[in-house]
Design a protein around this nucleic acid. Structure first.
Lengths: 225, 225
DNA sequence: CCACCGGCGTGATATGAATCACGTCATGAT
DNA sequence: ATCATGACGTGATTCATATCACGCCGGTGG
């Protein structure tokens, strides 16, 4: 279970173009930290100067409203990174990051990373790719928040989640409450919506997973074709 | 009014680090196109391989729902660019772009741009900066959509708009309908909200501009501080 | 083994906003 | 000058969803 930093780096898509020797060099610059479930890895508005790579576990990127309500911007697993924005410009952190499970992260200091950025265009381009992907997703999310009702947003989320796991099955750590926070809704409404999907045969739900049964019905609920 | 391509390029922040000779070289690779108000510059889902720079005019980036409702993701003026995502990865265009005024754009072909990307790290880093900024904004927008009511979202928008113009005054081309599409609301509700702000003395509205009168009251309506 | 806690199901109620349906007013085109 | 068009104001009504208030179940830890 405990991978060495080098092994972790090898699994980060952002670095896949780097030669082994570079990677090993990089691994040297890395500091490993572990965070228990629920702990806050970084706070919105903090000034931060490090990049984090998820080695194991899972973290969520969240915004928190005045009243304490929480929006989940994204959930990141092994191989993903975060904290890159503070490296590129040097504005404060734009959101909180919280460990959803016990997690171990690799921490890279700003200078070390920026160096690589300037000297190896592959890394810069890889990073561009990833930011571009995230921006696209963020825009899609804005669209779904404005254009879709809760049914549509749930359908959309389920389809995306299934897609990410490459099939029709979502091995779930996905509680109704979590879903609600990801689509800007309430636990109760998500509960009712999913119940309805089950009754209409669009999905099945067991204790440990959710399965897409009728992809096209979900797609049309999600307003996409 | 008609700037040469080179002059336009000089005004694009993304290229400000490039030496004059580079810039001139770049200008050569550029094709100028004009679009009348209301015309569609590019369609969501199209495959596109060019980057656009706004030389004059103004364009909006929008998503359109099944029912025809429109969400404005952003409004871009002179010096901004769009279409970069299709260059970085090569997925289809993620949104429609429509001219809000008669506009003239410079079009750059993918290869020419990618070349620069690989050879000059300053451009890559500049692009990272910009994408990072856009991602931050998109995340903020998601937050405001979920955490704020319409009042808050209008207040938020007004504050940002004023900030962009560097003062308390918004020279407006901003109709209620447009605002509604930017914050995911309806014309009527925006109308009522702004009337309310005026009555409470938070803003004043004339035919040609909006002025922020009570910044802190707006801030607290927008749930910030 | 029991107790607790977190996840879930479900009714009842409240409410913020969308929608519908008008009217008014300015602006630019003919 | 006149007309058409687009921006705005405002009531009345409807509706989707949040919220509140429960009860139930199943796993986990003491």
């Amino acid at each position: 279970m405990a991978l060495s930093p080098l092994e972790v780096l090898r699994r980060v898509p952002l670095f896949e173009s780097l030669p082994e020797t570079e990677l090993a060099h990089f691994a040297e610059l890395t500091r490993e930290k572990t965070y228990p479930k629920g702990s806050v890895i970084l706070f919105e508005n903090d000034r931060g100067d490090s990049l984090f790579l998820v080695a194991s576990g899972q973290v969520k990127v969240v915004l928190i409203g005045e009243d304490g309500r929480e929006v989940i911007l994204s959930v990141l697993g092994p191989g993903s990174f975060f904290g890159e924005m503070a490296l590129i410009d040097d504005s404060p952190r734009s959101a909180h990051v919280i460990a959803m499970e016990d997690s171990t992260l690799l921490v890279l200091r700003r200078e070390d990373f920026q160096q690589r950025l300037r000297t190896s265009p592959e890394v810069a381009i890889g990073l561009l790719r990833e930011l571009s992907r995230r921006l696209r997703r963020a825009d899609e999310k804005i669209g779904s928040l404005v254009l879709l009702d809760v049914n549509g947003r749930v359908a959309d989320l389920l389809l995306r989640a299934a897609l990410e796991e490459g099939g029709d099955l979502i091995r779930r750590k996905l509680t109704h409450h979590t879903i609600a926070q990801m689509i800007g809704s309430s636990r109760e409404t998500v509960s009712r919506t999913m119940r309805d999907f089950v009754e209409r045969g669009l999905i099945t739900v067991t204790r440990k997973d959710i399965t897409i049964k009728d992809r096209s019905a979900l797609l049309s609920a999600a307003g996409r074709s």
